[in-house]
Each structure stands twice: as structure tokens, then as C-alpha cells.
Amino acid sequence: MVRLTRAQQQARTRAAVLAAAREEFVEHGYAAAKVDRIAERTDLTRGAVYSNFPSKRALYLAVLVDLVENAPPAAPSPTASLPGALGAFARTWLERLPLVDDPAAGGRLQLRSLVGVVDDEPGRAVLAQLARLEALLLALGLESCEPDPRAPRRVRLAELVLTMLNGSGLMAELAPGFGDPFDRALACEHLAGLAGERGLGDTWDPPYLTFVGLAERCREPWDPPTGLLDHLTGSPADLGADGLVVALGARRLSAAEEAVRSARPGEQVTVAVVTADPAETGSLVRLRVSDLTACLRRVFPPEAWGHVRLIVSDGAVAAAALGVNGYDDQTEAAVRVRDGMVVARSQGRGAAYAAATGESAHDPRGAGA
């Protein structure tokens, strides 16, 4: 008889709870699901379920993360044109729409529905920040389709596409069978024409950057953490390159664009997401990021992300490397690395911009460290 270690037993119990919870959510939906029934399905006590997942919401989000991250990989089909990328991304995203005859509860799970799940103000604030991050990630892929470095920013275009697709998901939940997914994919493709040469007037020039204070200039050895996953490419993230490493709380994810747009040419940007609530907020972030990046990797080649890296599951490890140990959902901290040394560090609003430029926008001293 093979004896399981405690860690192996915990992993087996967690897997059994996830499998039972998925059955429960498919049969009853989130609102009507009962933790007691999930415990009965696994011959566990209610307390044993809660020892692995602190709430029904945490359990539901964990089921969705497991569904997304363990889905069979699909073959990528990169496309070079902006309209082609928009259409391909939309078709990939719309594959989640359930068929008309699918059970309603199971269809909501397939849709990654969060209706009635994230219904509190902190959760809604995190979702708003996630929407900004998602738009940035899609925009970076779209911008890679245009080799001219002077091409417009495509964040507003990405926002339009994601709004249409998320609306399609909501309609599929409320009115199954309404509308044709192929029409919606074609409409997303044609949004490239709406962007036009002016790019919807899309620019990045936040007025608050004028008031960002100076970064702390320093010269400290940089000991980059290893073994972290880059969610954009699905490959290990190398944090040893020159550039920015930024830790962002779940309610400050919009600041990721600060890091991306402020970085110096050729320097890497690594964004690590941190949260003090890994079971719920952390799972919500992981779900949305994993879901989006799975679609992006089928449409855009790895080089589309160029110098950008995104760490979600192990953000705390990256934050600790920055010297940030007491973090929460409002955290912003950044360091700039050059030649294996930390040459600038900053915390608070505008940290990424301060560390990238080495100075505030109105500082007359010229380029920073």
C-alpha cells in the first residue's frame, strides 16, 4: 500500500472538491449551489471543503480557473493584418458561447459567467481594473500588426471589441440563441475601419504624470526571482533583463500601461499582480487573465508582446524581490534594472513612470539614471 504524503493528500482532496463543485455548479448554477451537497458528493464534511476553499465564491472561481487553464490547447493561427487579427480574436473568444439546447447552469459555467458572483463594491472595482488591463493586452497585440512605430495606440479599439464580445456573452446567458456569432466576429473585423488613420483619436498622455515625484536613485544588486510564469506567452519569465519590474495591486492594474508606455526602447517591462486575498481576488484576476491570454496566444505570435511580461500566480514572489512585503490591492511599486543592478525604485501612484524616467515630467535635470 502506497502512503501519500500530506501534500499529496491535500492535492487529491482539493481535486475531488473541485470536481464535485463543478458538477454542482453545472446542475444548479452558482446561486442555488450548496456547499453541503458538494461535501456529500466527496464524502467530506462541510468544514473540510471550507478548509480548502474559504467561501462558495472562492470555490466557484477556482472551478472556472481550472476549466480555463486545463482546457485542451488549440493550434495557434497567427494573422498579420489588423482586420484579420480582430476577426480571429473574436471567433476564438466566441467559441465559449453555449448552444441553445445546453442546460442553463452549465452554459453559464462555460461562459465564465460572473453574474451574481462578483456583486460587491471591491469586486466590481477589481473587475473595472481588469477590463483596463485586458484592453491593454489586446491593444498590444493589435499594435504589433502595424510595423510602423508611429502607428496609433489601439486601446480604445480593443475596448470596443471587448465590449461587443462581453455583451455577446451576457446576451447568450439572458437570451440563449439570440444573434449570430459569425455576424459579431465580422463586425469586430470591420471595427478596424472605424479606427482609421487617426486611431479613434487614441493617445496616451495622462495629465497626472506631470505631478509624479522623483524615483529614488540607487545602486543595489538585483537578485531576480526564477521559475515564474509569463501569462502572455505561457513560458518562464526571465526577470534578469534590463528594464522595469512593477508590482501592482488588483485595484491598480490600469497602471500597467504606465509601465508599458514609459519604458525606454529595448528595455523589458514585467508587471506582477499582487493581492492580499489570493482565494477570491487572486482567483478572479487569474481567471480573467488566463482566459484572455489563452485567446490571444491563438491569434498573435509570441513576439507580439515584445518586451512585456505579465506575472499573476506568483506576483508575491516578484513583489518580495522588489522589497515590497506589505502589499494590498492598492499597491504600486517599481524598480528599474540596468546591468544587473537596481538603479531606481519608487512606490505609490505613478511608481512605474517615476522608475522608468528617473525623474518627474517637470524636472529640469534631463534623463534619469
Score class of each variant (00 low, 15 high):
Ala256Met: 00
Asp242Ser: 09
Cys218Pro: 06
Glu216Tyr: 01
Val269Asp: 01
Leu244Tyr: 10
Ala263Leu: 02
Ala256Gln: 05
Arg261Leu: 06
Glu216Cys: 03
Gly243Glu: 12
Val245Trp: 05
Glu220Val: 15
Asp242Val: 06
Leu239Asn: 05
Pro221Glu: 11
Asp242Gln: 06
Gly243Val: 10
Pro206Arg: 14
Pro221Gly: 05
His231Val: 08
Phe211Asp: 15
Arg261Thr: 10
Thr226Pro: 00
Ser254Asp: 11
Gly266Glu: 07
Pro236Leu: 09
Gly240Arg: 03
Leu248Arg: 11
Ser254Glu: 14
Gly199Asp: 06
Asp238Glu: 12
Leu253Ala: 05
Arg251Tyr: 04
Pro265Leu: 07
Asp202Tyr: 02
Glu216Phe: 02
Glu257Lys: 10
Leu214Asn: 15
Glu216Ala: 07
Ala215Met: 04
Leu209Met: 11
Ala263Met: 05
Trp222Asp: 00
Gln268Ile: 12
Pro224Tyr: 01
Pro207Ile: 10
Asp223Cys: 09
Arg219Met: 08
Ala259Phe: 03
Thr210Ile: 11
Leu214Pro: 13
Asp242Arg: 11
Gly213Pro: 08
Gly227Leu: 12
Gly240Cys: 02
Ala215Thr: 03
Asp202Ile: 04
Glu267Phe: 02
Ala237Thr: 14
Ala259Ser: 00
Arg252Lys: 15
Gly240Phe: 00
Glu258His: 08
Gly201Leu: 05
Gly249Leu: 03
Leu248Asn: 06
Ala259Arg: 01
Leu239Glu: 07
Asp242Tyr: 08
Gln268Asp: 08
Ala263Gly: 02
Ala250Asn: 00
Thr233Lys: 03
Ala215Asp: 03
Leu214Gly: 12
Gly234Met: 04
Gly240Ser: 11
Leu253Pro: 04
Asp238Arg: 11
Leu214Phe: 07
Arg252Cys: 09
Asp205Gln: 15
Gly266Ile: 06
Gly234Tyr: 01
Ser254Gly: 15
Gly227Gln: 10
Pro265Glu: 15
Gly201Pro: 04
Leu248Ala: 09
Ala247Trp: 00
Leu239Lys: 04
Trp204Phe: 14
Ser254Thr: 11
Val246Thr: 11
Ala237Asp: 13
Gly199Lys: 08
Gly213Ile: 01
Asp223Ala: 14
Pro207His: 10
Leu228Cys: 13
Arg251His: 00
Leu214His: 14
Leu209Glu: 09
Thr226Asn: 07
Tyr208Trp: 15
